[in-house]
């Protein structure tokens, strides 16, 4: 994959991510905040972006969504479960539900 292709992919993902996030926020702000892992202020901000702003953000060259694994324990549970699938998923869900959300400083 050359650089142009890479940047195009990043732009594509950013665009779909932002559009999906906006749709989720408009449908139900609380649930969207929980699912996206962002606080209500950030959710408000995302919801209020204009299409032009979304495009500009998507073109920034950085991936706007980031991994939510703070340490290797959640990743480990989801990737190589030894206790059985449903238990590992429940365990990971408990840890992820208790995570701090991204908030404005």
């Amino acid at each position: 994959m050359n650089l142009d292709e890479l940047m195009a992919e990043v732009r594509e993902i950013n665009l779909s991510y932002l559009m999906l996030a906006q749709q989720m926020v408009r449908q139900d702000k609380t649930m969207a905040a929980f699912r996206l892992g962002i606080s209500q202020e950030v959710a408000d901000l995302v919801g209020s972006l204009s299409p032009a702003q979304v495009l500009k953000l998507a073109r920034s060259g950085m991936l706007l969504s980031r991994l939510r694994f703070e340490d290797d324990s959640i990743l480990d549970m989801l990737a190589n479960y030894t206790k059985g699938k449903s238990l590992a998923q429940s365990h990971a869900a408990i840890l992820m539900a208790g995570q701090e959300l991204t908030a404005l400083a």
């Binding site: 609380t30 905040a33 929980f34 959710a43 208790g98 995570q99 959300l101």
Partner: peptide, 9 residues
Amino acid sequence: RTITKHTEC
């Protein structure tokens, strides 16, 4: 808890 802490809900 996450919902009540981070949103107005």
